[in-house]
């Protein structure tokens, strides 16, 4: 869903802020919670985001992407928060190129995950990702933002979005693989034991 505000010639009223901002509340909170890792900080972050957005709503550039604008405020607010400062200490390397994966694998993290619907495992692996990977992955996969929107939200060039996203996905796959293999082996042993009985 896109939130482009078409207000050619129209003035932005306080009413329209509420109308535009509240539908984003759930997803902004979800994003904030993933970033901060706890409820209190997520609520503070969302609250501060809305307060800043409301204050700056009159300066919101007409015809631009309201959703990306809100996420950018939240992201920038997070970066200046206590937990955000920790994230800034970790430098994202965006120059790395990933080679193509050519081999056709039968049991890949994707297929195993789909088969098992192992949501909790995936959530814990996402949680463990560096924040700059986690946020770009969530913006792309969960919020279904385009590269352009992500670029506006994170204030990074399009090329950075693409390379960082690619590395985030690769890191996720790499971290999932051993955990899923352990799970598969355990399941296999259990299965074998049962057959033995």
């Amino acid at each position: 869903m896109f939130y482009y505000v078409d207000v050619s010639g129209a003035r932005l009223q306080p009413d329209s802020f509420e109308e535009l901002a509240m539908p984003l509340f759930d997803s902004l909170y979800n994003f904030a919670r993933w970033l901060t890792g706890n409820r209190e900080e997520a609520e503070d972050l969302v609250q501060e985001t809305y307060a800043k957005a409301l204050k700056g709503f009159s300066s919101f550039q007409l015809g631009t992407n309201f959703r990306a604008w809100m996420y950018r405020i939240l992201h920038n607010t997070f970066l200046t928060s206590r937990s955000g400062l920790k994230v800034r200490m970790t430098v994202a390397l965006d120059t790395g190129e990933d080679g193509p994966e050519l081999a056709v694998e039968r049991d890949t993290p994707e297929t195993i995950l789909v088969e098992r619907s192992n949501r909790e495992l995936l959530q814990s692996v996402i949680e463990e990702l560096p924040a700059y990977f986690r946020e770009i992955l969530l913006l792309c996969e969960v919020e279904e933002m385009s590269y352009q929107e992500i670029s506006e939200t994170l204030s990074v060039p399009l090329g950075t979005v693409m390379s960082r996203l690619s590395r985030a996905r690769k890191t996720l796959r790499d971290r999932l693989r051993p955990q899923l293999q352990v799970g598969t082996e355990t399941a296999g042993i259990a299965k074998g034991t049962n057959h033995g009985l």
């Binding site: 789909v114 949501r119 995936l122 969960v142």
Partner: peptide, 23 residues
């Protein structure tokens, strides 16, 4: 498939009703 499972897993947290009301 990976996109789908991340999407499902990523929609994990929902705000408290009172927080929504306050906001």
């Amino acid at each position: 498939q990976m996109r789908r499972v991340i999407q499902v897993a990523g929609k994990r947290f929902t705000p408290r009703a009172e927080f929504r009301k306050r906001m």
